[in-house]
């Protein structure tokens, strides 16, 4: 179920307790009539571009709880990998919520995680050993924001990130600090033990995209679902996989600390057959 939720970007179809689509404009339930847009007032690359004020208002209502929640998701080990893992958990949580209306906290954390996951996935895939580093070794909150701004990470296709520089900085600090404390009740209801399954799902999906891209590039066909992914119809957190031509499938190992890649990812990379055969074998075993 966890793998399915992430592979299909199931959170797109969920509504939260405010009646807002968890994934906002990425959701088929996005309603412009119930969404207040404004021109971005922030003095950076986003200035003057459309920004979702309704989503920002919702996030502000739960902001302290959201930061606590992020810290808890990171836990006591404050590596880049753990920051990415926390973002992946934030992506999966709304789809796993057992009732119709997703709690506001999980909805807001999903929004924050969506952007973070793109940056962190791309960052980890780009360099072996980055997963082992502590997040603060890469720079502080100001350096993080500067790179997001200069690198256009805050610019969406039709809307810009609504978080202010100080909010993004606070989020970075929460990821950097971590905290081993008690989870929010919403997280408790989701149970535990599924974070690792979630990260494995994203990593195998990344490896699969890379292998399938190579296969297509070599003129060997893949099934239509796989071809659509290779063509770019992937969840946002995997865009960075296709962003580099001829990405090696085993770059997915870089998402994890050295020597700690999940068994399922290893099995996919070492498995027999073409991309679709390996994918099927992993899906048959994944939770």
């Amino acid at each position: 179920m966890i793998a399915e939720a992430l592979i299909t970007f199931a959170a797109r179809h969920r509504l939260d307790e405010d009646g807002r689509p968890v994934a906002e404009i990425a959701s088929p339930h996005y309603d412009p009539a119930r969404t207040e847009l404004q021109r971005c007032p922030y003095p950076d690359a986003r200035l003057g571009q459309p920004m979702n004020r309704s989503a920002l208002r919702q996030m502000a209502e739960v902001w302290p709880s959201l930061l606590d929640s992020v810290r808890w998701c990171v836990g006591g080990e404050t590596t880049v990998h753990r920051a990415w893992r926390a973002a992946v958990a934030g992506l999966a949580a709304p789809a796993l919520w057992p009732e119709a209306e997703v709690p506001r906290l999980l909805s807001a954390q999903f929004k924050a995680s969506l952007g973070l996951s793109q940056v962190l996935t791309t960052l980890l895939l780009g360099e072996a050993g980055a997963a082992d580093a502590r997040l603060v070794e890469l720079g502080d909150a100001d350096a993080f924001f500067a790179q997001l701004d200069a690198g256009r990470w805050l610019l969406g296709e039709s809307q810009v990130c609504a978080g202010s520089a100080s909010m993004i900085g606070a989020l970075f600090d929460a990821l950097s600090d971590g905290a081993p404390g008690a989870p929010d009740p919403a997280w408790s209801r989701l149970g535990d033990g599924w974070f690792d399954a979630a990260t494995e799902a994203v990593a195998v999906h990344a490896a699969h995209l890379a292998l399938a891209s190579r296969q297509v590039g070599a003129g060997r066909p893949v099934r239509p679902e796989t071809a659509a992914w290779v063509g770019g119809r992937v969840p946002p957190w995997l865009r960075g996989v296709l962003g580099v031509p001829d990405r090696a499938p085993d770059a997915a190992l870089r998402l994890f600390p050295t020597g700690r890649a999940p068994v399922g990812l290893r099995a996919y990379l070492d498995g027999p057959g073409d991309a679709d055969a390996r994918w099927d074998a992993w899906r048959a075993s994944a939770t």
């Binding site: 791309t122 050993g129 890469l138 350096a143 790179q147 690198g151 962003g243």
Partner: peptide, 20 residues
Amino acid sequence: MRQSLSFASLLLAAGGASAA
């Protein structure tokens, strides 16, 4: 290798622009 890691170097690899 870890001494050389930074947001600038890692996100440069992703194609981001410079703040300079």
